[in-house]
Design a protein around this nucleic acid. Structure first.
Lengths: 139, 139
DNA sequence: TCGATATCTGTAGATATATTCAGATATGAA
DNA sequence: TTCATATCTGAATATATCTACAGATATCGA
């Protein structure tokens, strides 16, 4: 089981077992830049407060900051900080109405990610085999 | 525009604009525990190195640690640390073959999340309208 | 204008995380 | 058993992140 060498783009050689597969995979792999963008998105979803905020918006459609704070039981200032990050990443969108700011999900893909991830959670330890669809409890 | 009060489960009162909507949303909202689990999953996906590792496995199907390291151009020890976290969360699965450990994705939902997120990236600023499905390139 | 309200922003401190180095473990071959 | 290889683990450090507090901004109504 000899190891071969693959010289990366940076000129740094690394030992490999299956250099052809490595090169083929590298060719199909998303770029560093794309991976960075996706990681950034997932990182935003990867905080319990933000996760709950997003699911609250998924359920409610639209909520103002104080109602979001009340719903997820978190300080309004924390909600505001969280929403700023989510807004900068275009995950949520804000609408002003008088003194209130109303937030909603601003991305169909993220909505699908949230939905899919929740399904994942609730079917967690079942095998991968085809299974009858379970009824979703939804508003 | 008067604010009402909603007394949370913890007895802490918070001002709300639309208390009925808050209560209704709270009822449908995923639990703290579920949100925590999902956030944990997203957090794992939210690191550029781990993201690239997962996409490499998505493309290649199965790779050993050294080939993963070569593919994503990261030190083998970093890969090992990353894989340990992903394995603990059942995102990847390991198989030993002699001295080598081969890793693969161990979750159909995560595979879908990765696929969907990549689609998200590549269709980023298109409108929400229905569009023809694009052909998937797979290993 | 003024005060009240809803939200935002800057900052600081505690906590969490990724990466690297050094060394440990496990396997196969001689 | 001994050596070489592939991977793992623990610890240290540098960095990133969340939360809370204080104060700023924006809007409404009097």
């Amino acid at each position: 089981m000899k190891s071969s060498e693959v010289v990366g783009l940076d000129g740094c050689a690394e030992k490999t077992v299956d250099p052809k597969k490595v090169v083929a995979t590298q060719r199909q792999l998303i770029s560093r830049d794309e991976a960075g963008q996706l990681a950034e998105l997932f990182r935003l979803l990867g905080d319990p407060t933000r996760t709950r905020l997003l699911f609250a918006l998924l359920e409610a459609g639209e909520l103002c900051v104080c109602d979001l704070a009340a719903t997820v039981e978190v300080a309004e200032t924390s909600v505001s900080h969280a929403l700023r990050l989510l807004r900068a990443a275009r995950v949520v969108r804000a609408r002003r109405d008088g003194r209130m700011m109303y937030y909603r999900l601003d991305d169909q893909h993220v909505r699908m990610l949230l939905d899919l991830s929740r399904e994942h959670l609730r079917h967690d330890d079942e095998p991968e085999a085809i299974r009858p669809k379970r009824r979703r409890r939804q508003a």
